[in-house]
Amino acid sequence: MTNILHILRKELRVYFNSPVAYVFLMAYLLVAGWLFSSGLFLRGEATVAPFIDVSPLLFLFFIPAITMRLLSEELGRGTFEILATLPVRDGEIVLGKFLSAGALFLCSLICTLIFPFGISLAGELDGGQTFASYLGVFFLGMSYISMGLFASSLTRREILAFIVGFLFMMIFFLVGKFTQFMPDRLAALADFAGMDSHLNNISRGVIDTRDLVYFVTLIAFFLHLTVYSLESRRWR
């Protein structure tokens, strides 16, 4: 357990000692801020919905940027060889890395809280729904991170980890969007497998355990795959 914290702390150090974290935060906040504010006065409505709605698409590009280095860098530099010969379990490595990217992501999300705060000064903001929206986006981001982490465990090339992670995320991003072209049974399945329906439920303000379980399961699944992928060196 303490090992996870040590790895988490080291990963955050690497993020913040190098320009990665600052460039990420700045770029993300610029884009998010622009998307949020561009239609603000036209809408004349006190809601963060436009920002929340575009988040799944926005994260599709930003999350792989922070997850691609997590394991690929260690594999490429060879530092993984030291890490793997320390008395640390692969699972602890994976969780520490997952949480570090999660922490950076949470940082960026907290910075965007200025949108709801700002808007609540000017009008009546639905606090409960805003909270739920943020919760949904948080879970969405964490699921993306687990996919990105898995992609990063597959290759020692960071660019490849970016693209593969992006593809995993895109599958879950898109699969719920084409339900109207599918036969009913497949549509139901796609609707369940895709992130859209679950995210919509939550961001409407309905916090249903089924939706939360969906995200948690997705995260656990990809973290497990990551551990297996690291362990695969043992039976290759």
């Binding site: 040590h6 080291k10 150090r13 690497v14 000692n17 530099r77 530092t79 030291i82 008395p87």
Partner: peptide, 18 residues
């Protein structure tokens, strides 16, 4: 293999902690 973004003492403390 080492982490170029960590300082020497940060790195040694990280390894020691693990």
């Amino acid at each position: 293999p080492l982490y170029p973004d960590l300082s020497v003492v940060e790195y040694l403390q990280f390894i020691g902690a693990l």
